[in-house]
């Protein structure tokens, strides 16, 4: 097996292992299914482009979050009215097949998604990483903040989110 093929195969296994990260980040920056398909495609394409330069000194998930969040925030900032569907693929790379969980949990999940979606893009990134139970150090590294500031901000955004929950 040549080097390029080995890299391609390794990339496929990384994507399969961490597909949840890609889907979660994409769904918190893009609620429309058709646009989300484009965003997932763009994230995977940018991960593929960046994969050869991946520095093994860092965790794979750290690298993946950085790329996924950067691509998603850039995508989110694009003017929706001028945004074209750019898919070269007709089907979705990541599909969520219908799943009937307990209705109350489903309802709470939808509310959580809605409330996180209402946060500004940087606070949203902070909250996603916090809920993913990343350490302050890793969150600080992904976002480019200091650890102290990360802790302060998380506490503030968390309070904001809890307050919103109470109001519903």
């Amino acid at each position: 097996m040549d080097f390029e093929q080995a890299t391609a195969d390794r990339f496929l296994s990384v994507i399969a292992e961490y597909k949840g990260i890609i889907y979660k980040v994409a769904s918190f920056y893009c609620r429309q299914a058709e646009d989300r398909k484009d965003l997932v495609q763009e994230i995977i394409y940018q991960l593929w482009r960046s994969f050869p330069q991946y520095n093994e000194q860092y965790k794979l998930s750290t690298w993946m979050y950085k790329v996924a969040l950067n691509v998603s925030i850039s995508f989110y900032r694009k003017d929706k009215r001028r945004q074209e569907h750019s898919s070269v693929l007709t089907d979705s790379i990541l599909d969520l097949v219908p799943d009937n969980g307990p209705p109350e949990t489903e309802q709470h999940l939808q509310l959580l998604q809605q409330l996180i979606n209402e946060l500004p893009p940087l606070e949203r990134a902070l909250m996603i990483l916090y809920l993913e139970e990343k350490s302050y150090r890793e969150i600080a590294e992904i976002l480019g903040l200091t650890e102290t500031n990360t802790a302060t901000k998380i506490s503030r955004v968390k309070d904001k989110l809890k307050q919103k929950f109470r109001n519903y």
């Binding site: 940018q46 790329v67 950067n70 480019g144 903040l145």
Partner: peptide, 9 residues
């Protein structure tokens, strides 16, 4: 895109 979020954005 693999740089920190604040720096890249």
């Amino acid at each position: 895109n693999s740089d920190s979020v604040l720096a890249t954005q």
